[in-house]
């Protein structure tokens, strides 16, 4: 399978490794993490669903970027990934 350069990132304080060509979603999944946020109402776990940017189930916060679709966002070295909703657009 595809080989890309290793990229280090964190998810809620865990240090993880993905590779160039990963999206944030694929890097989380490759690390065995299949859900990375909880829904606002029912608190149900969510990860990817449509995989192509349509459903917005896969939202994460990355540093200052809020509610980003993890399945569309290329993974970058040093990304600090957190469950979506941990910071509001109005600031922490």
């Amino acid at each position: 399978m595809a080989e890309g350069q290793a990229l280090r990132f964190t998810f809620s304080d865990r240090v993880l490794v993905g590779r160039a060509g990963d999206t944030v979603a694929s890097a989380l999944i490759a690390n065995g993490i299949r859900s990375w946020r909880r829904t606002r109402r029912g608190g149900r776990p969510r990860g990817i669903y449509c995989g192509i940017g349509t459903c917005f189930d896969c939202l994460v916060d990355i540093g200052e970027e809020v509610a980003v679709r993890a399945c569309l966002r290329p993974l970058q070295e040093g990304d600090r990934v957190a469950p979506s909703g941990s910071v509001g657009p109005a600031g922490p």
């Binding site: 606002r40 509610a67 909703g85 509001g88 657009p89 109005a90």
Partner: peptide
């Protein structure tokens, strides 16, 4: 209509 936000 905006995206849902924490109370702002």
């Amino acid at each position: 209509v905006t995206e849902p936000l924490p109370l702002a």
